[in-house]
Design a protein around this nucleic acid. Structure first.
Length: 937
RNA sequence: GGGCGAAUAGCUCAGCGGAAGAGCGUCGCCCUUACAAGGCGGUGGUCGCAGGUUCGAACCCUGCUUCGCCCACCA
């Protein structure tokens, strides 16, 4: 057997590329549509083509890969679908910004064809970059299936879905109030508008009656819209105005007259109780006009400038300029009553940041009601579950209050709407293929200029990626997906719409479980942003980055405030970022993912888990240095029978028992998406049990005998210990592999193991908890050894006994059972605490000895003779005594309570009694120790 | 204005009805031949506040306070 030595520190840069290409070359990530095994599928939320992998992706994708690798190893036919999203509006914003900066042009200057050409160019560059990054992270995506939301197959799916929905009356064209984004010059959906409170003013304006009989004062935060007013509304029950309803007002600055109408949407308590109504530019006012029959005048155009029928003077002004002009003119005309500062809720485009202009326009809509009803019912019936469960409410609330979805966009990069208008008649043709001529009048047709909301194609993604609208094998096998992992921020945008479309077109929910990830923030809980300079780039964590490199990047990326960004970078990454490899990052993300709403990540945190990976590396290194002569096949045969297992020594029984408990914990945790529990179970097993105890106890048995002839017994024992160590490590690699694929593969490949195993760790079998390995007795015995060793080390440390010095201690136990155990494991204790021990049942108080208690009965005596520091010892024991007495008081109080005795379960009462007994023994021993000290004085 | 969540060790978080836990930090002592990215030991908490339910509450209920995050058309 080879005993290849490993370097002292784990070097991911050598290991990662090697195994990545090994996995890819062997097609281990690919799932077979026709496999007879149980399918398990996840669709990766397709990253935007504009982006590169950020920490949020790293989190979500790592969790998906953990699930996929885990299920794959459990024998499921695990398929993880990769893809990229065309991100219509995001690309627009990006390309247009670039165009403006480099060429001072708009997309309109460029023209549709040229713009599209450049967008595709961008896609080719950017799309492959993100895939490369995903590969680097070890994500076991099924690459041959990789898709793009604007590839031929997706285009076909989009057309098919659009046409069918249109034919079913679920897609329609209508003139309604929409959110106009003057920045990107397109409609955006309600979800793409952020309402923010901004400082503005509330103007009160006088509207005189046309007959000169007085006036009505109205208040507004948008005086320029008065140019489009077509009425003033009052509450029908408002006694102040009942007499004037129906009268005409002379609208200042316009020469028009407008009526006073009654509508109950008016709040009589606000301002004067009268509202100016601008139906074309305010959603409320539009509703009002529909109820009261007021006319609609559009005075703002799609570029956010005033247009006729506003008076010529204002035409062409921007909204802001028009506002100033109107206010000035009103004031000059004596119409302005007052101006006061006011907090104005203002809608802003999430994409362009421009102030949203509500407008009345003809657009394409999805009738959401019927789709949402089924999507809500599916969750109510438990067909799809949210994890954590609390998101169910968010989803349900939205579904139950859903509004129609505006799906047309006045952009170019995206799926062009498959609707053709006749140049001669009013016929609209919605079809899968471009019609040669108008079916009604045979006139020429032209296609709708608009494209679809980027989320329309995303909504079809779980089935369009599997071949829909064709009935494919892949679709039959992998739809519905088992899990969707995504961020809560796109529940409405994406999750809800996949649910609606999946149920509609496939008749089944698209996924059984929706796992919502946390938001990754910096260590202070602040959202990561380029401007704050607190962005943790996963690739920097993997490869490392000097502070200079990080700062230099700011100059290339040119964020809005480069100085602030640099300051932030210096603050957060002052010493740069050490290269920590993929596994450290992945493991950190899993370990920190407790399911709370945010994960505070910092470089220090990742370093902590890098240390863990290194610890594991060194434990393996130790093993490999000591496995010479080990024969895995022989060992397997040795362990095959339960009887043989019974022959194992306690430490071996113990570590195997702990290992099986860890397997069980990992499995249970993953079933419940408790990633941090799973990661921490492995972390503690490896560090606290395997490294801190088992390896230490194994050492004397592994060392090669000095003499020429090794005695047979020691040799056999050595082989068993080697076997257990190798087995435990091999199992640990399998357990840990979904979290840290690279380091585990590297170690696993080096470990001696029985032949006929697969070529890669990633296709071995995930450890299954086997209760037959549980050994309660061994765990209890080991606990005693650990407790005695720890108590002894504590005394040593307290009294400054040099680590190199072996001291003699006395162990006392009055009871027979623990004394027998101490006797049995004397050597283990001696080795763990660097002592020699003598055992006694009791005896006279030992003057000049420091004393520690283990449990109630076992005493550890460290003889110090004249060197004992009596006051220190006294203080220490008194502190323990105080704790013990408090505990006794609490326990006695409980037992004195008749209700407790009567109502609490018997076993609880018995347990409390037992604890009281033990605690009393402790107190007695501690008092005795104090008395012994007294002798010294 | 509605809804949801959080408040536990210096920091970040587990625990969610029967003995207060982890990681990091901090303080000692150690280069003990796997690992100083390490070892050993220690310190540190009226579990936000006030009530209630219960034999028993960090955990369940009510109210309050303080922070987050969503949703919402008030001129």
């Amino acid at each position: 057997m080879s005993t290849s030595a490993l370097p002292k520190q784990y070097d991911p840069s050598e290991v990662e590329p090697k195994w990545l290409s090994f996995w890819l070359d062997n097609g281990f990530f690919h799932a077979d549509d026709a496999s007879a095994t149980v399918p398990y599928s996840i669709t990766l939320p397709p990253p935007n083509v504009t982006g590169s992998l950020h920490i949020g992706h790293a989190l979500g994708s790592t969790m998906q890969d953990v699930l996929i690798r885990w299920r794959r190893m459990q024998g499921w036919n695990a398929m993880w679908m990769p893809g990229i999203d065309h991100a219509s509006i995001a690309v627009h914003v990006l390309l247009e910004k670039d165009l403006k900066r480099r060429e001072h042009k708009t997309r309109f200057d460029l023209g549709r064809d040229e713009f599209m050409r450049r967008a595709w160019q961008w896609k080719e560059r950017s799309g492959s970059r993100i895939s490369e990054q995903e590969k680097l992270m070890g994500f076991s995506l099924d690459w041959p299936r990789e898709r793009f939301t604007m590839d031929d197959q997706s285009n076909r799916a989009v057309r098919e879905a659009f046409v069918r929905l249109y034919e079913e009356g679920l897609i329609f064209r209508a003139k309604r109030m929409i959110n106009w984004d003057p920045g990107s010059e397109t409609v955006v959906s309600d979800l793409e508008v952020d309402t923010v409170e901004e400082h503005g003013s509330l103007w009160s304006i006088r509207y005189p009656f046309a007959d000169g009989s007085g006036e009505i004062v109205v208040a507004t935060t948008r005086p320029e819209t008065m140019l489009g007013d077509t009425g003033v509304a009052v509450h029908p029950d408002d006694a102040r105005y009942t007499a004037v309803v129906g009268k005409e007002l002379a609208l200042p600055l316009t020469g028009r007259t407008i009526p006073v109408v009654a509508d109950s949407f008016v709040d009589p308590a606000f301002g004067s109780g009268a509202v100016k109504v601008t139906p074309a530019h305010d959603p409320n006012d539009y509703e009002c006009s529909q109820r009261t029959g007021l006319a609609i005048l559009q005075v703002i155009d799609t570029r956010g400038r005033m247009q006729a029928p506003a008076p010529a003077k204002y035409v062409g002004m921007t909204v802001d300029d028009a506002r100033k002009a109107v206010v000035a003119d009103l004031e000059a005309g004596g119409f302005l009553v007052e101006t006061k500062p006011y907090k104005v809720p203002r809608g802003r485009s999430q994409r362009s940041g421009a102030v949203i202009e509500p407008m009345l326009m003809e657009q394409w809509w999805v009738k959401a009601g019927p789709l949402a009803a089924k999507a809500a019912a599916a969750v109510e019936d438990g067909k799809t579950k949210f994890v954590p469960e609390l998101w169910t409410k968010t989803y349900m609330h939205w579904m139950n209050h859903i509004k129609d979805w505006c799906i047309s966009r006045q952009l170019w990069w995206g799926h062009r709407i498959p609707a053709w208008y006749c140049d001669s008649c009013a016929q609209i043709t919605v079809a899968r293929e471009e019609p040669a001529a108008c079916p009604a009048c045979h006139g020429k047709v032209h296609q709708d200029e608009d494209i679809l909301d980027t989320w329309f194609s995303s909504a079809l993604w779980p089935f369009s990626t599997l071949g829909w609208p064709d009935k494919t094998r892949a679709l039959a096998t992998f739809y519905p997906n088992n899990v969707l992992v995504t961020g809560p921020d796109i529940i409405f945008f994406w999750v809800a719409r996949m649910m609606m479309m999946g149920i509609h077109f496939m008749g089944k929910v698209p996924f059984r479980t929706v796992y919502l990830t946390s938001i990754v923030t910096d260590e202070n809980g602040d959202k990561m942003s380029k401007t704050k300079g607190n962005v943790i780039d996963p690739l920097d964590v993997v490869h490392g980055a000097t502070i200079e490199a990080l700062l230099a990047r700011v100059d290339v990326e040119k964020p809005p405030d480069p100085e602030a960004a640099k300051k932030g970078i210096k603050k957060h990454f002052g010493k740069g970022i050490p290269a920590m490899g993929v596994d450290s990052l992945r493991f950190a993300l899993a370990a920190l993912n407790t399911g709370s709403s945010r994960i505070r990540l910092s470089i220090e945190r990742v370093e902590g888990y890098r240390n863990f990976i290194n610890k594991l590396w060194n434990a393996s290194r130790f093993a490999l240095l000591n496995l010479d002569g080990y024969d895995p096949e022989r060992f397997e045969a040795q362990l095959a029978s339960p009887a043989a297992r019974g022959q194992l020594a306690m430490p071996e029984k113990w570590i195997l028992s702990r290992l099986q408990a860890t397997s069980a914990a990992v499995d249970t945790a993953l079933e419940q998406f408790r990633f941090s529990d799973a990661a921490n179970a492995i972390y503690h097993f490896v560090w606290d049990e395997l490294c801190d105890w088992y390896i230490e106890l194994a050492k004397p048995h592994l060392h090669r005998p000095e003499g020429l002839q090794q005695d047979a017994k020691a040799s056999a024992r050595r082989h068993v210990v080697q076997g257990v160590l190798a087995t435990v490590l091999e199992t640990t690699m399998r357990l840990l592999h979904p979290f840290a694929p690279y380091v585990t593969e590297e170690i696993w490949q080096k470990l001696p193991k029985p032949p006929q195993l697969p070529a890669s760790l990633m296709i071995t079998v995930f450890p299954r908890a086997d209760p037959s390995w549980v050994d309660v007795a061994a765990e209890a015995e080991m606990q005693l050894v650990q407790d005695v060793a720890v108590a002894t080390r504590m005394l040593r440390a307290t009294y400054g006994v040099a680590p190199s010095q072996t001291v003699a201690i006395e162990l006392r136990a009055t009871a027979e059972a623990p004394r027998a155990l101490l006797e049995k494991y004397k050597e283990l204790i001696e080795r763990s605490a660097r002592i020699t021990a003598t055992l006694a049942a009791g005896g006279a108080p030992l003057a000049g000895a420091a004393k520690a208690l283990v449990g109630a009965d076992v005493q550890v005596l460290l003889p110090l003779g004249g060197l004992i520091d009596a006051p220190k010892e006294k203080a220490r024991i008194e502190k323990e005594l105080e704790k013990s007495r408090k505990e006794i008081a609490a326990l006695e109080k409980k037992l004195a309570n008749a209700d407790f005795i009567a109502r609490a379960p018997e076993e609880v009462v018995a347990e409390i009694r037992g604890r009281l007994r033990d605690e009393e023994l402790r107190t007695k021993a501690l008092v005795e120790a104090l008395e012994t000290l007294g002798v010294m004085k």
